[in-house]
C-alpha cells in the first residue's frame, strides 16, 4: 500500500458516498445516469468475487463490501425507490455497445484464461468506459448539479491517483499490470474534458453547463 493508492481508494469511496447521500437526501436522482450506476455495480460484482475465495486484508475486504453495498443501494434507489425521479429520457446511452466489445476483449486479452481472471479483466475494461452514459447524459441535458460534478471529480481523481500508484509500484516494487494500466489511462483520459470544465467553472463557483 502507498499513499497514492490509499488516497485513490478514499477518493473513490468519497465519490460513492457523495452520490449515495445526494440521492438519498434530495430524494431525487435527477441528472444521474442509472445506466452508469448499473455498470458500476456490474464492475464491482465481477471484480470482487474473490471475496468468496481469498482474504487479503481487513481493509481490502471492508472496502470491497462497502463498494458493492453502496453501488447496489444506489441502483436500488434509482430504479426502485426513487424511480419517479429517474430521468430516463436523457439516459439513453446504448450500454450494449460497451458491454459486448468489453466482454469480447476480456476473452481475447487477459492474464489467464480462468473464470475469475476473465471476470476481473472484464470488470477492469468495463470500469474504464462505465462513466460514458453519465457523461453522455450531461451532454444531452447540457448541465449538471454541482454535487454531481463533485462526485465525478472524485471518481475521476481516484483512477488518476491509481496511475501514480502504478508508477510508484513499478519503480519501487517492479510490479505492473499492463491491463489495469492501459484501462486506467483510457478511463482517466475520458475525464479530461470534464476535469477542464470542473476546474475552470465549478471551482470558480459557476454552474457546469454545456456547451462550455
Amino acid at each position: 500500500m502507498n499513499i497514492f493508492r490509499l488516497t485513490g481508494d478514499l477518493s473513490h469511496l468519497a465519490a460513492i458516498i457523495i452520490l449515495l447521500l445526494k440521492i438519498w437526501k434530495s430524494r431525487s436522482c435527477a441528472g444521474i445516469s442509472g445506466k452508469s450506476q448499473v455498470l458500476f455495480a456490474l464492475v464491482f460484482t465481477t471484480r470482487y468475487l474473490d471475496l468468496l475465495t481469498s482474504f487479503i486484508s481487513l481493509y481490502n475486504t471492508t472496502m470491497k463490501v462497502i463498494y458493492i453495498g453502496c453501488s447496489y443501494a444506489t441502483v436500488y434507489l434509482i430504479y426502485m425507490k426513487l424511480k419517479a425521479t429517474y430521468d430516463g429520457n436523457h439516459d439513453t446511452f446504448r450500454v450494449e455497445f460497451l458491454i459486448v466489445p468489453v466482454g469480447g476483449l476480456a476473452f481475447l486479452v487477459n492474464h489467464d484464461f480462468s473464470p475469475l481472471e476473465i471476470l476481473w479483466t472484464f470488470s477492469i475494461y468495463l470500469e474504464s468506459v462505465a462513466i460514458l452514459p453519465q457523461l453522455f447524459m450531461i451532454s444531452k441535458t447540457g448541465e449538471a448539479e454541482t454535487i454531481t460534478t463533485h462526485y465525478l471529480f472524485f471518481l475521476g481523481l481516484y483512477r488518476a491517483l491509481y496511475l501514480i500508484n502504478w508508477i510508484w509500484r513499478f519503480y519501487f516494487e517492479g510490479f505492473f499490470d499492463m491491463i489495469a494500466i492501459v484501462a486506467g489511462v483510457v478511463q482517466t483520459i475520458l475525464y479530461c474534458d470534464f476535469f477542464y470544465l470542473y476546474v475552470t467553472k465549478v471551482l470558480k463557483g459557476k454552474k457546469l453547463s454545456l456547451p462550455a
Binding site: D50, T53, S54, K64, Y162
Partner: peptide
C-alpha cells in the same frame, strides 16, 4: 474458484 486469485488492489 481458485484461491490464489485474490487481487490486492481494489
Amino acid at each position: 474458484l481458485d484461491d490464489d486469485f485474490g487481487k490486492d488492489e481494489l
